[in-house]
Design a binder for these strands. Structure first.
Lengths: 202, 202, 202, 202
DNA sequence: AATGAATGAGAATTCATTCAT
DNA sequence: CATGAATGAATTCTCATTCAT
């Protein structure tokens, strides 16, 4: 019945993907709809067939980015290890991932700005944060059960603090690449897990 | 030396300050030179007497912001305390400061984008990071000397990781205000100082 | 002859009719081909199967409008009355009609503009004017024969002036609804007819 | 104090005037802001210094047109004549004026459309209509006092009908130039005056 | 020095029209 | 015949920057 068979959802993703790459490289404001159309290999008007306006485009691109990251997070956990080991290896895996998406980082910041201005789909990012925190909290609880982790900690808060560190680290690393992420991760892991105090307060 | 020069520098600061507030509230691209001029109580053309173009304006505004933060950092350290106590109180003080500059956060992100695109005065921010790290590293070393802190840590790397955490925390808190900064800071500090492991690895 | 042709013509009218309503309500430029297609319950491309372009569409819509008006004009004349009574009742009938097509008035103006720019089917409208004038002139001549109307008038010119009044009245009424069409028509009729009548009505 | 002395009101009029001419010739939608700027001998952006958007421009142009017409109306009345003679000469003068502003007629229609769509400054045009009606009503009343005009007419309604006629005539003349305005005016005047005059002219 | 009028490059968006299916 | 996806020409409007006063 339809005269032209086009997988609209697929096409939408393609366009948003092309846009995301450009946004990451040059920034939202510097990228014109013409640029996006050219990168996607379509006409300018066609972009508007799939996205009402430029803002919808950045939302679409962001969704794609988040879903990629969600996949990476899931892949990072190795369930064959002990809880603490799993947390450690997951953290290193995430550091690895983030180190390689530097190009996307600009786009990520860009979207944070949108959120900061009250536009943007905040819930989407909150969900990702929540999920990451839950995963960490889960490992910490498993660690308590396995007598690897102190039982007097508030796992939710500790997980939140832990997750925050990861984003802070990538941020600092973007600004100041020394010491490397690996070094920082090791130092953090050591201090966080072992504590820096000479003695435990009893 | 001549009073004119001082006046000129003062006026420059005023303009950049007004610009900074606007940039923080509405974003660099949304703020027009007209807006800045009006906020500074001068004519549009006059802005160009003090700043070559709009980009110089954002650099000026960022410098002011950083110098404010530098002042806050310095004020946050209480030298009458023991090293670890000083680090703790400084951290809480910084959390306090950051919690109250949320409005500026958009502008901060904005400038990060500039840096990410290769524009912007990267060194300025790097210096601030370095100074903050040095301060922390100094406290850690004093802590070692005072037998409060394990002597086997790499103070520079740990300081870097510590500083990163602070920025990650404010970032996460902007996105997901639960649990509050205070709770996260407490959880982090506890883990950092005490470690989360049930036992120290020997 | 072939039923297909009839169907085609019917469909053409449907589309033009739908377009006319929209043009009247929102104006030619504000109405998109998509709007017309939707209103006609067909696909956008199908409109082009029946009309070469958007301009043809407005011509088609105008033709329909004119043919409606032509019908109304014909219906307005009651041949059982004396010539002057027929002219009077016809005028009141037309006033009635026009008062109720206010919605179409915008479209009418729109088409006048097309004509003014040298586009548009001028002859069509001229014919309608001519026919209306002829009808009035005919009644005036019958009036002369019936000794109801002064024989020294130029019936053609008087008919033209009379017809013009009707359009002027509706126009003024659109802009300034006071006094109502009825009041104006009565005043006009009184002034106009008392002048052309052979004898004053006492 | 102001660095550049420009009579803003004067400039505004110039621009609106240039725009009005173009609107009349080619129609509102066909005229681009670039066209207006070029015709006014200024840059595109400058138009926006004086008019918020294209719509404001048409309002400005219309105001100028109306004020021109108002002037013409005032000039058309010769107070040295008897009331009826004054009305007659004024009517012929208006016919003369209108015959020569045919070029503006398209623009006039255009604005009528704006009014029809609920935009546009309706009151402006209503005032002009009112004033014209008042002038005519005044002459009619003077005519009654001078025993030139029947005292049993409703001067306000007759004046409204009279004014409407003028606009209808110009409209019909635009569409169908035969018979000429003069001929139609004569026919109308003859019918009108013979009807309202206290006595028939012999 | 200070100003704000003038400018035009540049960008988002719309929509009539085409054409492959 | 019918369709609607694709297109790009065209248009409005913004705003950083210049410069005469």
């Amino acid at each position: 019945m339809a005269p032209k068979i086009v997988d609209r959802e697929m096409r939408r993703m393609e366009i948003a993907g092309a846009a995301g790459v450009l946004f990451g490289k040059y920034g939202f404001d510097k990228v014109t709809i013409d640029d996006v159309a050219e990168a996607a290999g379509i006409g300018k008007g066609t972009v508007y067939e799939y996205f009402k306006n430029k803002e919808e485009l950045i939302h679409g691109a962001f969704e794609i980015m988040l879903s990629h990251m969600g996949t990476e997070i899931e892949k990072s956990v190795d369930l064959t290890l002990t809880p603490l080991e799993a947390l450690k290896s997951s953290t290193y895996a995430m550091v690895d991932v983030l180190e390689h998406v530097g190009e996307q980082y600009g786009f990520f910041l860009e979207y944070m700005l949108l959120l900061n201005r009250g536009k943007g789909n905040l819930a989407l990012l909150q969900n990702m944060f929540q999920e990451y925190r839950s995963m960490i909290a889960g490992l910490l609880e498993a660690g308590i059960d396995a007598h690897q982790v102190r039982s007097d900690i508030d796992t939710a808060s500790v997980a939140a603090a832990f997750a925050a560190w990861l984003d802070g680290a990538i941020f600092h690393w973007m600004i100041l690449p020394t010491p490397g992420m690996k070094t920082m991760a090791t130092a953090f892991w050591d201090a966080f897990v072992q504590g820096v105090a000479l003695k435990r307060e009893e």
